[in-house]
Amino acid sequence: MPELSKKILDKIKSEKISPREKWVFLAKNYGVWLLVIFGIVLAGIFVGNFVSDLLLAEWDIFPRFPGGRINFLANAISVFLLAGIFAASVFTFFFFRKTKRGYRVGILALAGMILVMSAVGGISLLSTPLPLKFHEIRLQHFPPHLDPQKWMNPSEGFLFGEILEIGEKILILNAFDNLMWEVDVSDARIPPFLELKEELKVRVIGEQIRDGEFRADFVKSGNPRRDFTKYSRK
């Protein structure tokens, strides 16, 4: 044992081992912090989109959504965004733990911290065009799915089809059951961004008067999120 220090010093000398430069450690440390910040921003974008999805959800028809309230929530909440939040949080968690003092923060405290920071970041991002841009890209790759079977049920008060003609307070709709419907929209609530025009796909919630005749309480876009995005761009 006494010669251990001699052995080590000899090895240091013979193999020309020298302490690594300070900048190497600084660069590594800053690199890890950059990855942490990147993870939080990414999680923030996902959270921002998740919140905006919830805000844009058709809450006005929440009680009358086909398939019930659970189906409404399943439509409003994007599994893709939830998975994104989770993945970005795990990424941030992993790299935060790699920072010099990261190990001192407990798992639950760290998970909570990441979620709060992502939420604050995400909500702050809502005022920038970034979430909307991300929203558009997401819709291109993951368009929201509306089940025509659920929306094409006139006796239950749901109609889904394409506008053929627009009259005064009347829409002629070619519904997905290949029947023509005359829809009375005189008392219907229509979102401000929805510009009714021929060939536009719409969903209607209301009441069937008789075969081929329907009274609308709500007229909704056949592709709600995309139309809203276009509206917001304007």
Partner: peptide, 20 residues
């Protein structure tokens, strides 16, 4: 153990500037 210890001291020496 002694071999391992030697590695420990060599690693410590290389990373001496990283000591907080």
């Amino acid at each position: 153990g002694e071999d391992l210890l030697q590695n420990v001291f060599l690693k410590a020496y290389q990373n001496l500037r990283d000591f907080d």
